[in-house]
Computed example of a mutant assay.
Amino acid sequence: MTDLLDLRGLLDLIVACNDDDAVWKTYGWVWAQEGDAASVGFHPQTRRGDDATDDGDGEPEPPITTSPRLWLYLEAITVASILDVQKQSRPLSGLDDYAQALDYYSQHDTFLDHGEPAPRDREEADRQGLSPGLYAAFDLTLETVEPAQRKAAASLVAEVKALSVGEALAQVRALPLAVARNVDRAASAVLQARFAAIGLALQVTGYRSFPWQERVQAQAG
């Protein structure tokens, strides 16, 4: 029998996909024991291992056997959307807040929307190193360019930031230069590789999804 995930494990698994497209491609339905999201076990079913069966009456059977049994809960991409709405409106949400948002959706088939976040909450989330969206985010900064590298740096910056070479060169001369802000993990890796190819390292500052995750430290790209 496959071990079930608790809520924290489920949320960490969802955000480890790094974007909605990967969630959709990786997971289909999430199965769960009956009860509140904060206390039940979950089984996210991979699309590659789509092992749900039909019981003969058109109802899918749980992909694994547990006691108590599992029930169809929500699609994984819907779970991601619920988490995202919760985080957008309450940037400092903890595990109990996400549990409440999931329970509300599962009962009412609509999002628990608290409205716009207070500016001080967004500022505090930034201070704590929390990403503005659901998934991890990264800021990339160019801090050092040797004079001999300025032309190559300006050419790449112009392409990345959609600037003229002259504008880019002025920014390269006035370091530090924000190359990108709030990009996802894949985009961060691509940009770091492009600058590394011309001998330049980017300073990378990472922002995590949830308060309980380890804080991402700034590092050289």
Score class of each variant (00 low, 15 high):
D54P: 05
L92H: 00
L10A: 02
D109R: 10
I198F: 05
V190C: 02
P60L: 15
S89K: 11
A76I: 06
T205Q: 03
V79A: 11
S155L: 09
A16R: 10
H114N: 07
A118T: 08
D126R: 12
R122N: 06
P68M: 01
R47Y: 07
E124G: 03
D126Y: 04
A118H: 14
D20N: 15
L175V: 05
Q33K: 03
T78A: 12
G115F: 08
D184E: 13
L7M: 06
L134M: 12
A218P: 15
S209N: 10
Q203G: 03
A152C: 08
V30R: 03
A197P: 04
K25Q: 14
L92A: 04
R8L: 03
S131F: 01
E214H: 04
D113R: 08
A32H: 06
V165Y: 12
R90N: 06
D12P: 04
L5V: 05
R8Y: 00
F138S: 01
S89L: 01
A137G: 14
A16Y: 00
A178K: 15
D6F: 02
R194D: 13
P119Y: 00
A37C: 04
A137V: 08
R120M: 09
H108E: 08
K25N: 12
L4A: 06
V190W: 04
L70S: 02
Y27L: 13
L112P: 07
P91T: 01
S131G: 06
D19E: 14
D96G: 08
R150M: 13
T78K: 12
Q45C: 15
L177P: 02
V165A: 10
E61I: 14
D19L: 07
V216M: 10
V23R: 02
H43D: 14
A125E: 06
A148P: 01
D55M: 11
G35C: 11
I64M: 12
V216A: 02
E75M: 09
P91K: 00
A193V: 11
G41C: 04
Q213Y: 05
V183W: 02
D6E: 03
A201E: 09
G28F: 03
Y207F: 15
R215E: 05
D36G: 09
L134Y: 07
P147T: 08
A37K: 01
A186F: 05
E34W: 00
A37M: 00
V183G: 05
R47V: 14
D55T: 10
D55L: 12
Q149C: 11
Q107K: 15
G28K: 11
R194C: 08
S67I: 03
W71L: 12
V30I: 13
E167R: 00
E143C: 07
D54I: 12
V145K: 02
D113E: 08
V165G: 03
A125R: 02
W71H: 14
D103M: 12
P63S: 10
A174W: 01
E59I: 13
A189R: 15
V172N: 01
A186L: 09
T141H: 01
F195T: 09
L177E: 01
V23I: 15
L102Q: 03
V216R: 00
M1A: 15
I82E: 07
Q100V: 09
T78C: 11
A152T: 10
G115T: 07
N18H: 15
D96I: 00
K25E: 15
T2H: 12
G166E: 04
G115Q: 05
D103E: 02
